[in-house]
Nucleic acid binder design. Structure first.
Lengths: 240, 240
DNA sequence: CCGCAACTATACAGATCGGTATAGTGGTAC
DNA sequence: GTACCACTATACCGATCTGTATAGTTGCGG
């Protein structure tokens, strides 16, 4: 019901990504992530990209639009990266752990300073800002993904225990387990950005593993060709 | 060893908080949190506080110093708020849950947009920035607090189980349980700021409750007058 | 060879940035 | 009564901000 089509579809980029525009977006993405959005001016972006401001404004029209493209592109890349890593995993438990593995790999080479969406949210207070929907959209999508996968875990448990009504010890309903996984995941990204302790994503993965395997549910041999519950979450390309 | 005296002491404010300075700091704190640090100029702060820029610079000397005072004061207020809420709880389990309860109450009236430290960290990339130590200092302090309290849980478990060597099912060492609690807590604050789902702090508290009470360890009747493990964490006033 | 797309180069606009300078006012304490 | 403190008022500084204007250059497809 509320899984993949969360709020609204992220409208695809309508600007033509010419070579100059691509260089500008690359430079802007790096600068925005490293120093923050408000701390980076368009002059710096143009200079770093080897592009004139004229080109910048011919392609993007405004700085706000550059910000939108920055976040939309990053969101898209992350979802593609995650989908690639998920499509080889079959069981719900394996897929959940694969999300954390993917996040760790992604963070290692893309997000040493924390989640770009969370960081952008710290600088964009107005919910009517066009970037706001991208930020919350990705997070809602991640929550839906975790919840879908948690549903698979629940189903496994029910099958094993002979159809108890879910809510009991280790996580209760799928919605609740999904939210807990979401908290661990978000917390890990933040902790990594702050550098509080070593490898928080691995720590979150371990805790997730305990959580979903607490009652001894399936670690290996995960039943068939991926239950339909999380089908659209993994393959859903750019929507919501 | 590494608990309360983490890195270095946060040097106390050395500026005289005259009425005008206090009004300026109040205005700056509100504006910084609501719109971000870089998005707020000193002219706006002065105008909102009903103070001239001259007064601002006579008191604080620079915008950077205003930022430092903003974060230091908020850090101080949070620690005092938390200490107040913790001093009535006696068992380690109760104290852990009290942290989440305090966080929820604090967020309700102070942090609808997420943790101010995390948000500030998104805007301050330079680790040599004087505010950086305040940010990481609070987070390290929180981790030490959780770890201290987790040690109390571990001890309770060992007592109950007849001195097994800790690491086993539900969290293993105190350090590990402390880190997991940290992840849940940080994740909850982020999720609340993003408004992804309802009351993430309560969700985190529930999960924490399951975590520390997994083996049926003490929910009520928590053993005497607060074990020495977490003594300095609760009462440590402004240090670390 | 013409037209168009993508670009460079440069200069400028109006506003705002953090920060400073000068001059003056009200209150209070010794 | 004077010296000091906290403050107002205002004007200014150079730099940077987002955004625009004019003019010219390259390369490529029909």
């Amino acid at each position: 019901m509320s899984s993949s089509t969360g709020t609204s579809t992220v409208e695809p980029r309508r600007i033509s990504m010419t070579p100059g525009a691509q260089r500008a977006l690359d430079a802007a993405s790096r600068l925005f992530y490293e120093h923050g959005i408000h701390a980076v001016g368009v002059d710096l972006i143009a200079a770093e990209a080897g592009v004139t401001k004229k080109t910048l404004y011919d392609r993007f029209g405004s700085k706000e639009q550059i910000v939108v493209e920055y976040l939309a592109a990053r969101d898209e890349r992350w979802r593609a990266f995650l989908a690639e890593r998920l499509k080889t995993e079959q069981g719900a438990a394996e897929r959940i752990l694969a999300v954390f593995d993917a996040s760790r790999a992604w963070a290692d080479e893309n997000s040493p300073r924390g989640c770009s969406m969370v960081n952008a949210h710290a600088e964009i207070s107005d919910p009517s800002h066009p970037a706001y929907a991208i930020i919350t959209g990705q997070k809602k999508w991640m929550l839906a993904l975790f919840t879908d996968l948690a549903r698979g875990i629940d189903r496994g448990r029910d099958r094993q225990r002979g159809r108890q009504q879910g809510r009991e010890r280790g996580g209760g309903s799928a919605a609740q387990l999904g939210r807990t996984l979401m908290l661990l995941h978000e917390g890990a990204l933040v902790a990594r950005g702050l550098g509080i302790f070593k490898d928080p994503v691995a720590q979150a993965r371990e805790e997730a593993s305990r959580l979903i395997g607490a009652s001894g549910a399936g670690s290996a041999g995960g039943a068939g060709t991926a239950g339909g519950a999380n089908r659209e979450s993994a393959t859903g390309s750019t929507s919501a």
